[in-house]
């Protein structure tokens, strides 16, 4: 009975053991390849969605599953938030952490522009690179793709370098 209670508690805890989540993500990504021969992919779905929203673009139903997958991620986040026993997100400094609280502008308008421009860089970068942390790093590197290895190395090197430099300049 105690084991059962422990398992239930673990299921509803907001953070799972890293190695366990990583293994489950690998199994999920592989199941997708096994069932439908399609590696994990996020940013391409964004590109398809952007294409659909542009007037006069012919819709390619073959790519619909990518957008359905993105919709599922939203649903998964909702389920996770409803079952983690933690209070709802308030957007406090503690929730954003020391670094992002110092980095992001304080005003409503300033922060909105910051997030929007950050998103633009992410979307544009992912398309030029041909993938993101899902398609290149989790799926591509696991398949030993040279382009994915290079892209992932640059993602991490630039992100770590930028964050370290910004943290040093901000003194946080």
């Amino acid at each position: 009975m105690d084991t059962f209670a422990t398992l239930i508690d673990a299921l509803f805890s907001p953070l799972w053991t890293p190695v366990l989540v990583g293994a489950l993500i690998a199994l999920l990504a592989f199941t997708q390849r096994w069932l439908v021969d399609q590696p994990l992919s996020c940013s391409t779905g964004f590109a398809n969605l952007a294409g659909y929203l542009r007037p006069g673009t012919a819709r390619d139903p073959q790519g619909d599953w990518r957008i359905v997958f993105l919709l599922g991620i939203v649903l998964g986040g909702l389920i996770a938030a409803l079952t983690d026993g933690a209070p709802a997100w308030q957007g406090t400094a503690a929730e954003f952490g020391r670094f992002y609280t110092a980095l992001v502008p304080e005003s409503t308008l300033g922060s909105a522009i910051w997030w929007l421009v950050g998103g633009l860089l992410i979307g544009l970068g992912a398309r030029l690179a041909g993938g993101c942390t899902s398609g290149h790093t989790i799926a591509g590197v696991a398949m030993g793709a040279p382009a994915s290895l290079v892209a992932s190395a640059v993602f991490f090197a630039v992100a770590v370098g930028t964050a370290q430099l910004a943290a040093w300049m901000l003194g946080v």
Partner: peptide, 16 residues
């Protein structure tokens, strides 16, 4: 592209 992605990722703490 990978450089831009890294900048956006570090700047927001978010990926697609």
């Amino acid at each position: 592209g990978a450089v831009l992605f890294g900048l956006g990722w570090a700047g927001t703490g978010v990926c697609p």
